[in-house]
Computed example of a mutant assay.
Amino acid sequence: MTFELANKVAIVTGGAAGIGAAAVRHFLKEGAYVVIADINADQGEAMEAELGPDCAFKYTDVSKRSDVQDLVDFAVATFGGLDIMFNNAGISGTMQPNLLDDDFADFEQVLKVDLLGVMLGTQIAARHMKENGGGSIINTTSIGGMQAGCTVLSYRAAKAGVIHFSKSAAIDLAEYGIRVNCIAPGGIPTAILSSATGDAEESGTTSAIRRIIAEDRPLKFDGDTSDIANAAVYLGSDRSRYVTGIVLPVDGGITAGNPRNPLRAMLAEAMAS
């Protein structure tokens, strides 16, 4: 272990499960003090009890300014500062077959959590960082915010907004030594896909979607939450001190292009004849 985050104080929103929980554990292993922020108090408090005195849980609804302000104040009061803000909390909304069938009933809540939550977390963390030597802000977007596609359109719009907001914030906050970057996960097995499809478990529609993702992915093995957490460690550490305003896809190559290329098969057939 390199202890790349030694003595840094980090907040991870959505930290009680999935990508957030993996980031909490990786940050702790690298020497950070970590505040777990989530609306799931049972899981958050269980993690706090399991992981020991270098982490603490704070109930937080990231769509509410007062909750985010209380969260930052709590981190500063508990651990003495704030160096890394990982705005990771997110929800998917419900999948609809196509645009014409979508009633956008989930629009307001998805935008509040996925976009406004990131904006509030960035702003309020930056206000502290500005007066205390800077810091690193990491925002979770999605490859769905980078590439157009069907279904979960509110989610795609919110995640695209995260990218543009983060690049703008990176420019705005650079003079204060505050870096702002995005991580764009893709094809990472977490509960967010099951919640979008309505599957109680990894079955049915969820499993079919995962098979399609695997076929469209150049790297033929599954990523997991630790891959995103490793990216977050890099962006939170001093190794990335000259990196700001980027979108880092962690997706097995999905955004690079589709490997199912009929031209390859056509050329092979032509050469064989």
Rank of each mutant, 00 (worst) to 15 (best):
E4G: 13
A6V: 14
V9E: 15
I11E: 01
V12T: 11
V12G: 07
I19N: 00
F27R: 07
F27M: 12
K29R: 15
K29H: 15
Y33R: 15
N40H: 10
N40K: 11
A41P: 12
Q43G: 09
G44V: 12
E45S: 12
M47F: 07
E48L: 07
A49R: 13
C55S: 09
K58C: 09
Y59C: 14
D61Q: 14
V62M: 06
S63N: 07
K64M: 08
V68C: 00
D70Y: 05
A75Q: 02
V76E: 00
V76F: 02
G81A: 12
D83I: 01
D83R: 13
M85Y: 09
N87G: 02
N88D: 01
A89D: 04
G90Y: 00
G93W: 08
D101L: 13
D103N: 09
F104H: 14
F107C: 13
F107M: 14
L115M: 13
G117L: 09
Q123F: 06
A125L: 05
R127A: 09
R127Y: 10
G135T: 00
S136E: 03
A148E: 07
T151P: 08
L153F: 08
Y155S: 05
A157E: 12
A157H: 13
A158R: 09
K159M: 02
V162P: 01
I178S: 01
V180R: 00
C182L: 02
P189L: 02
S194L: 08
S194H: 11
T197P: 02
G198P: 04
D199A: 11
E201C: 06
S203C: 14
G204S: 04
T206N: 09
R210L: 07
R210H: 11
I213W: 03
L219A: 05
D224R: 09
T225W: 00
S226P: 13
D227M: 01
I228F: 05
A229Y: 01
A231H: 02
V233L: 12
L235G: 00
D238E: 10
V243S: 03
G245T: 07
V247Y: 03
L248T: 03
V250K: 01
G252Q: 06
G253D: 07
G253S: 11
I254E: 10
T255Q: 05
A256Q: 13
A256I: 11
G257V: 10
N261Y: 03
P262A: 03
P262L: 06
A265V: 12
E269R: 12
E269P: 06
M271K: 15
A272C: 07
